[in-house]
Design a protein around this nucleic acid. Structure first.
Length: 828
DNA sequence: GAGGGACCTCTATCT
DNA sequence: GAGGTCCCTC
């Protein structure tokens, strides 16, 4: 998308004027109020609501600081209060603070909260995603980065096409090497700040195998240069290069940003860390907040070593651990901790909570993917009475899983919103419109030109465009420039009239684009391009929907022109290139949210469903195949951990015994190996037929059923340790301290993964199977220790064998005293 | 050069 | 199940 712009002011914009201060929040202390760090700390409203660790993280402002923030530990609160503190204590003016996040949504939320604390002066902060900050820097640094100010940003799609063209130019068959792999290689190189001529490039895995990758990288860079385009990787790499090469500019910039803060630091890559080091080179005031247990982006170049090695990189860096969880019930916290503790490479935090045990985790084993989806819909409907739909979320490993859940929710008339998957800005008609915007604003944007000139069809075909591509390469210019040149020197051939007409329209629009407001220009382009007309002429329902999407695009443009910093059409294009799935999250829409686990990071809901817990999905097949390499499985486990820790009160885990892939026939699945890390006594099983029941008993029930129907199933379901094959590490005896009334005590004793005893139907009861599963009735007396799947450990206080069934009154450690059927407990 | 039908392959995850 | 690609016809 077209990024840069003619907005190149002085090298760095002068400090913005101080705006009138308008207090919006009770904790607002006004701009520039100087606090002495002594007694005021005790009483300052910014600090009183924080716990000791949070307060330390907020007030330790000079030098480097690493804040290790566990899930739900009030991380955002720390960042926002720290920014407010910096300003309130007079350490910095808003424009001297740079705060970076990973998604626009996180940035937006953060800004909102800071405005509440500080008032309107918060608008002068530099706050945004790494990539949007990259665009902003690059605009100001364009001259130092060999870019025209009107540069274009290629999205993943554009860059894949450019990769394909680069490969074609080299005579590289896309059958031999898929362009996607080359693109991935280039992306990794850029994440590590490696240019095509860097000898270290040869150390990357693919490069060693094949020199072609490096040649393709070179040709790809040439494609970008001629199109005056940058890709996502460049948004970080180019500023880094420019600042390395121009130390004076770097120093100037670093002095301007006196305090730099970073959220989700565990997911930064090499280039991002380089940028941070450069931006803080003058003062070293860098505060990073993250959680190594939530590092889930290594595949995108994130280096968890950034966070693990931070204290070494910044000698003398302070470290603050936030370990108190304010989000989830003790049960959810204990279960998720049991899962993540299986990982070896951790900083090691011990999360604790004062929250009560809450409800047990609900586990569901469905027959097929549709059954699983129907169960989710049923549970959602049941939860509706307790909680709003917008407090319920369904998470899955891959977008492909959303469809069947959507169908079930729709059938049950439950409103939902899918985050990601098919994005608005990826719809064909929207991309066509954006291509026209680009063709008008960015004269050398090759991808924009190629798409615009063929949509709507105007008789310029592949043969013509290929010829223009060759010429562009020969002359070292962009494809649209080559097209114009061919018109000038009369080599355009058969397409001459069509191309002439196309450029006439584009040029006319370009003149208007310089002067008129963005929404006006946008509407005019839709009209003059013929896009809208072509769709209207189709007169089908589908075409009508597409026209509506174009109207929606214009509405988005209007909104942009009313609110954004850069209100031009160019600014709009830059923004659409950088929108993420989670950014579209509407607030309080009264709808169930559906998204991938990756998209769920940083969010929280009262009720969470994690579906498709099967080997091959979570953990993903590729991670299983790579076992042992790069800790792929550990990252998958962290992904499961992230999913679980999004839940405040109700957590549901499910898998299907059979699942369809690619719309084909159902295939047998194996339950996720991570399920065996979830302590069974924190779970109940809901089979979808009656009330949820304790897991031990219901698994026996399942075993009976599946022994008849699916002999292969029982092998997978929560077998005793070892039945799955030896666990990678000895099962940890998990104990999550729960602080209640000032006393710390473990929640659940010896919660160990799996202590359920489903057995293979054909090899008889296991020796260590509890008596109930061997058909003997265990005997109980007062004082007997028993275990219940939902309530945990307890002690029998009364035995009643007068009725048909043995009844026990049990004093549970956490759940209190209960009277229940002896069949629901087993000796502990 | 456009358009339509048959066939294929494909899925992680995302700025 | 669906988008992309190939091939054929107009």
């Amino acid at each position: 998308m077209c990024g840069g712009g003619a907005l190149v002011h002085s090298r760095f914009a002068p400090d913005p004027p101080i705006r009138a201060h308008r207090c919006l929040g009770p904790a607002c202390t006004g701009p520039g109020r100087v606090l002495d760090s002594g007694p005021a700390m005790e009483t300052d409203p910014l600090l009183t609501s924080l716990n000791d660790e949070q307060r330390r993280a907020v007030t330790t402002v000079d030098g480097a600081l690493l804040v290790l923030a566990g899930a739900g530990s009030g991380k955002t609160r720390v960042i926002t209060h720290r920014i407010a503190w910096l300003i309130a204590s007079g350490k910095a003016r808003p424009w001297q603070i740079l705060a970076m996040t990973f998604t626009n949504k996180a940035a937006g939320e953060m800004k909102e909260r800071i405005v509440r604390l500080l008032g309107e002066s918060a608008n002068d902060l530099w706050l945004g995603t790494f990539h949007s900050v990259g665009v902003r820097l690059l605009r100001q640094l364009a001259g130092y980065a060999n870019l025209q100010p009107s540069f274009t940003i290629y999205d993943a799609d554009d860059s894949l096409r450019a990769t394909g063209r680069a490969m074609k130019a080299l005579g590289l068959s896309d059958k031999l090497v898929p362009p996607k792999r080359v693109q991935h290689f280039i992306d990794r190189a850029k994440n590590r700040c490696l240019l095509p001529d860097d000898p270290r490039l040869a150390a990357l895995p693919d490069a060693r195998r094949d020199r072609l990758f490096i040649d393709a990288y070179k040709a790809y860079e040439d494609e970008l240069r001629r199109a005056n385009a940058v890709d996502f990787g460049d948004l970080l790499l180019r500023p880094v290069q420019a600042l390395h090469a121009h130390k004076d500019v770097c120093a100037q910039l670093s002095q301007r940003f006196r305090y730099v803060l970073v959220d989700e630091f565990q997911d930064t890559n090499f280039a991002q860390f380089e940028l941070l080091k450069l931006l803080t080179s003058a003062h070293g005031n860098l505060c990073v907040v993250g959680d190594d247990d939530q590092s889930i982006y290594s595949w995108r170049g994130a280096e968890v070593s950034n966070i693990l090695g931070f204290p070494t990189q910044f000698a003398g860096a302070g470290v603050v651990k936030l370990e108190r969880n304010y989000r989830s019930t003790a049960t959810i916290l204990a279960a998720s901790t049991a899962v993540v503790q299986r990982n070896a490479g951790r900083h090691g935090k011990v999360l604790w909570t004062e929250a009560g045990a809450g409800d047990p985790i609900v586990v569901h084993v469905a027959g097929g993917d549709r059954d699983e989806a129907e169960w989710v819909a049923k549970r959602v409907a049941a939860l509706r009475g307790k909680v709003g739909l917008d407090e319920i979320a369904v998470f899955y490993r891959a977008n492909a899983l959303s469809r069947v859940i959507e169908d079930a929710l729709r059938a049950s008339r439950l409103p939902y919103v899918v985050i990601g998957g098919f994005r608005f800005f990826e719809r064909a008609e929207v991309k066509d419109a954006l291509a026209w915007f680009r063709a008008v604003l960015c004269p050398d944007d090759t991808e924009g030109f190629l798409r615009a000139v063929q949509n709507p069809k105007r008789g310029v075909g592949d043969t013509t465009l290929e010829g223009l591509g060759d010429r562009a390469r020969r002359d070292g210019i962009s494809v649209p420039a080559a097209a114009r040149r061919s018109l000038d020197d009369g080599t355009a051939g058969r397409s001459r009239a069509k191309l002439t007409e196309f450029f006439a329209v584009v040029d006319r629009l370009r003149v208007a684009a310089e002067t008129d407001a963005a929404p006006v220009v946008g509407a005019r382009i839709l009209k003059a391009s013929g896009l809208q007309q072509a769709l209207e002429a189709e007169d089908t329902q589908e075409a009508t929907d597409r026209v509506q999407n174009l109207q929606e695009l214009l509405r988005a443009l209007e909104e942009h022109a009313g609110t954004a910093e850069d209100r031009t059409l160019r600014g709009f294009l830059a923004r659409t290139a950088l929108v993420a799935d989670t950014d579209q999250l509407g607030d309080g829409q009264g709808r169930v949210s559906m998204m991938t686990v990756h998209a769920a990071k940083g969010l929280e809901y009262d009720a969470v469903f994690v579906v498709g817990l099967e080997d091959g999905l979570l953990p993903h097949q590729n991670a299983i195949a790579d076992e042992g390499r790069d800790g792929g499985l550990e990252e998958e486990r962290r992904l499961f951990y992230v999913a679980m820790t999004r839940a405040r009160r109700w957590l549901h885990l499910s898998y299907a015994r059979q699942r369809r892939r690619f719309g084909g026939a159902p295939i047998e699945t194996t339950p996720s190996r991570f399920l065996q890390d979830v302590p069974t006594d924190l779970c109940v099983l809901d089979d979808g037929w009656g009330p949820a029941r304790p897991l031990a008993r219901s698994t026996a029930w399942l075993r009976e059923r599946t022994a008849q129907e699916e002999p292969s199933f029982a092998r997978g379901a929560w077998g005793p340790a070892g039945r799955w094959g030896a666990p990678s590490r000895p099962p940890a005896a998990v104990s999550v301290p729960v602080r209640a009334g000032g006393v710390t005590r473990p929640l659940g004793i010896g919660l160990r993964a799996p202590d359920l005893h489903a057995t293979d139907p054909d090899d008889g009861p296991a020796d260590d199977a509890p008596a109930i599963q061997r058909g003997e009735a265990p005997s109980y007396q007062r004082g007997s220790r028993v275990r219940h799947a939902g309530f945990g450990l307890g002690q029998v206080v009364e035995v009643d064998d007068t009725g048909a069934n043995l009844k026990l009154t049990v004093q549970f450690r956490l759940a209190g005293t209960k009277r229940l059927d002896a069949r629901y407990v087993r000796p502990a």
